[in-house]
Design a binder for these strands. Structure first.
Lengths: 194, 194
DNA sequence: GACTACCTACCTACTGGTAGGTAGGTTGTC
DNA sequence: GACAACCTACCTACCAGTAGGTAGGTAGTC
């Protein structure tokens, strides 16, 4: 139940989200943002004192929203393989929705230029995602539905990073199948590896 | 035999390379660049008419240099597994040398904001790398040293993207082992997958 | 009267890029 | 050997445009 009139603050976060996911944190300005929402650049400061603050809150919201999506997968699918496929589906959906990258992957690439507050949020996102995947891999190994070498946490990190990388390449080539194919390949490898 | 005095043009490319790999194309200026080399920003235009031109030539040089590294691996190691390990070694070395990312991964993330000439070079880099890896995977399957499902080209793309993604995460966490571990995991998976 | 949600007007710092100049070297002609 | 013509490798000074951010005002709501 979203309200009929979206509050300006949410509109700003929505517009900033799209700009960060497509262009990156360093490649959008308050003027870009304001134009999309229909207010003046100076007015954005009424909601977010600085760009760093906006970025931090944006990443925080994104992480929470992603966390909810993961919970939905957990309660919707019991099978570890199925959960991984749905996880891949989240990335595919993001890419399809206007050639967006995962915000976490985008910001991690810009890491060296980011304010401290945003850096913390980026790492937190990695932490949350990898923790969820580690649970899936643990469960998969326990039930024999997934087979892989090494620690579940290492598999989780590799899996997550591989999707981020595939997403970046897929967008550069304008070919969503690159991401789908990588997802399939990874899940396949996790079924059959000793 | 490098000359005792490195020509300014090369110094500029070297400095730009480091800036792009650490901060990104959108996060460095001609002034940053000029300061590092010890000349004025306007003088950079004497060597490179525009930033887009600099970026294009930079990526071109990087691709050629990477290509030479791949040739060196090919002639130094015959075993497909060993070649993959050395390929991973290239990425680890880059990360260790001043927290640099692969320039291709960095620019692909900034893809939406790049001039056409640079975009072309980025895709060319993907093409070259994936072609080399595809050869390795073909050879690996033929000799039975590598085992994986699907087409070699799909495995190559996934492998390459996974390393790019792992590298990005490794730098954000200031933990090179994240990259090493992902590399090991992937090669391991490629030994034993049916 | 206080608060929210904006606005105009403006600031300083910086962006990529240009115009025009200069010091010093090389090449060609007589 | 003298001198013009041209080159490379920079320089200072400047341009329009944009960055993030600030000060202070206004119209409407509780």
């Amino acid at each position: 139940m979203t309200p009929a009139t979206v509050p300006t603050r949410e509109k700003l976060l929505d517009a900033a989200e799209e700009l960060v996911q497509t262009r990156g944190y360093n490649a959008f300005s308050f003027r870009d943002l304001a134009k999309r929402v229909g207010i003046r650049a100076a007015s954005v400061h009424h909601y977010f004192p600085s760009k760093a603050d906006l970025g931090r809150r944006l990443m925080d919201r994104y992480r929470r929203s992603f966390g909810e999506a993961l919970e939905a997968i957990s309660s919707g699918a019991r099978d570890p393989r199925r959960r991984l496929e749905k996880f891949v589906g989240l990335f595919r959906e993001t890419l399809r929705r206007g050639d967006r990258l995962c915000m976490c992957g985008m910001l991690a690439t810009e890491y060296a230029t980011l304010p401290a507050g945003i850096r913390t949020e980026v790492r937190r996102f990695y932490g949350d995602s990898e923790a969820w995947l580690t649970d899936v891999f643990n469960e998969g190994r326990r039930t024999g539905r997934l087979r892989f070498a090494g620690k579940p946490a290492a598999a989780a990190r590799t899996f997550f990073g591989a999707l981020e990388g595939a997403m970046i390449a897929a967008r550069a080539f304008g070919d969503e199948r690159r991401l789908a194919s990588a997802g399939q390949w990874l899940v396949q490898a996790l079924k059959t590896t000793a």
